[in-house]
Each structure stands twice: as C-alpha cells, then as structure tokens.
C-alpha cells in the first residue's frame, strides 16, 4: 500500500469543503447572484458597494472591537490556565479537562447555556451581581455590556490554546525554576522575569492564531444569544455576511465581503508573522 493513500481522505475533504467553496466565493464575488437566477458577471460593483455600505463598516467596527477584547482575554485565559495547571498535582489533573471542557461543547448548546447565564431576569450572573448589591449591567440590552459578554463567552472556549500554552510551559526546564528559587526570586518575580518572557513566543503565536479565529468565532453567539443586537452592537462581519447571503439572497455581495475579509486577515497575519520572526532567542 502506498503510504500517501492515507492523505487522500484529508486532501479530498480539503478540496471539496475548503478549496472549492473558496474558489466559488472568489468567482461569485464578481457576480450578481440571488441563488434563484444564474449568476451574472458585474465586475467590481460588489466591492464598490461595500465601501458605500454603512452597515458593513458598523459590522467591521464591531468585529474589531470584539477582537480587541477577546484576543487578549483568550490569550491571558489560556496562558494563565497553563501556568496554574501545568503541574502534575491532582488538582491540576482535574483542572485541565475542566478548562478544556467548554471547547468540546457544541456551539449551539454553549450559546444557549450563555443565553440563560446572561438572562436579565433569572440568569445567575444577574443574580450574582444583585447579591453583591450591585446593579447588573444589561448583558443583552446594553451595547457595550453585550459586546463584553460575547467576548467573555469566547474566553472560556480556550481548549486548543490551553494545549499550546501547556506545551510551552512544560517545555521550560525545571532547573531554571530551581535556579530562580536558590537566587531568592519571589513567585511574582519568577513569573514576570522567567515564565512569561519564555512563554512569550508561544503566546504570540496563540495571539496570531486567535486573531484569525476571532474574525469568525463570534458567529454562533451573535446569531443565537444576541441576534446581532442590541442596536446592531453584535452584528459582526460573519453574521453580516450570513444575512446578506441567506436573508437577503445577495450571494455575490456576501462573497465579495468574504473575499475582502480574507484579504484583510491575510494582511494582518503577514504583519504579525514578520514581527514574530524577530522573537527568537531559544
């Protein structure tokens, strides 16, 4: 048996589920297509419409706000969990799967769970605030509180990031921690001068990966928990594309937005990659 035969299912999936739709999106971006009539070529008209569409800019701003809140939160959560849970202790052994668990929950179930948590009348988060004598922010009614809530939701689904950060933390030799202990370094000094700088390349890689992921991972919560509101505060680009395609049947226009989003993501990745290349010392 040829060894590369094992690659065929993967390659088939890649072509059918990724490459073909991507190529189709690029082609459709230059067409007028409602899904009923055959697509008609319209040149760069979809792209010029994007720049005149205030709703697109609103969605893009929402996405960037989400990224600005969610990426640091997720990297801090993954890095922090890795630092706390890397040891071989029994508590850490229980903590690791617990921290990973939200990532294996189906997205819709996870979103529905948060819909309950954030509920302004009977949600536990509201109850927790009230028990402290503090008025709970309107998690589903105030635009900024809702944006923060969606970002916080994403900060619990850090399973893959946790695995990367755990691997980075465990790769650090124990002897340097023993050297720091003999040197009289406090835990905080060791964390800030040894652990974090040595994990920085891995955490930077995680941030890079999360930046790409964060353009997309708000789709399900925005659709199910907030439905894009309140006052369009959580209408992120993926939801905007989805509605353009499947609510208003503007497949050509939706494809053009997707292509633009892809180009923007690629540009950001390129800049970060160039920056990350300088970060080598080990």
């Amino acid at each position: 048996m040829r060894r590369d035969v094992l690659a065929w299912p993967y390659l088939t999936g890649l072509v059918v589920l990724v490459l073909f739709p991507a190529m189709a999106a690029i082609v459709l971006a230059f067409t007028e297509y409602s899904g009923v009539q055959p697509p008609t070529f319209n040149g760069l008209e979809n792209f010029s419409r994007i720049f005149d569409d205030s709703l697109f800019w609103k969605a893009l701003a929402n996405s960037l706000i989400f990224i600005a809140i969610s990426v640091p939160l997720r990297v801090i959560a993954a890095g922090g969990a890795a630092i706390l849970l890397h040891s071989r202790s029994r508590a850490a052994a229980v903590g690791r799967p617990a921290a990973y668990l939200p990532s294996v929950m189906p997205d819709v179930a996870y979103a529905l769970l948060w819909l309950w948590i954030l509920n302004p009348i009977y949600g536990p988060l509201t109850a927790a605030f009230e028990s402290l004598g503090v008025t709970s922010p309107g998690w589903l009614t105030d635009p900024w509180a809702t944006r923060v809530a969606i970002a916080v939701m994403s900060a619990f689904q850090i399973g893959e990031g946790l695995v990367v950060a755990l691997a980075a933390r465990r790769a650090l030799p124990g002897s340097i921690y023993e050297a720091a202990a003999v040197d009289g370094a406090s835990p905080l000094f060791t964390l800030t001068r040894v652990t974090l700088p040595l994990m920085a390349p891995a955490l930077a890689l995680l941030a890079l990966r999360d930046l790409i992921l964060s353009f997309q991972l708000n789709f399900v919560p925005a659709l199910i928990v907030t439905e894009g509101g309140p006052r369009l505060a959580t209408t992120f680009v993926p939801l905007y594309v989805y509605r353009a395609a499947f609510t208003y049947f503007r497949f050509g226009y939706a494809s053009a937005v997707t292509v633009l989003l892809f180009a923007m993501t690629a540009a950001v990745v390129f800049v970060q990659y160039r920056l990350a290349r300088r970060w080598r010392f080990v």
Partner: peptide, 12 residues
C-alpha cells in the same frame, strides 16, 4: 548559591 549540572542559565 548553586551551580547546576545543566547550568540552568536563563535562555532569554
């Protein structure tokens, strides 16, 4: 003070 077998210098 201790000098370790693997020296344990801070690589960064």
């Amino acid at each position: 003070a201790m000098v370790f077998q693997e020296l344990a210098l801070y690589p960064h």
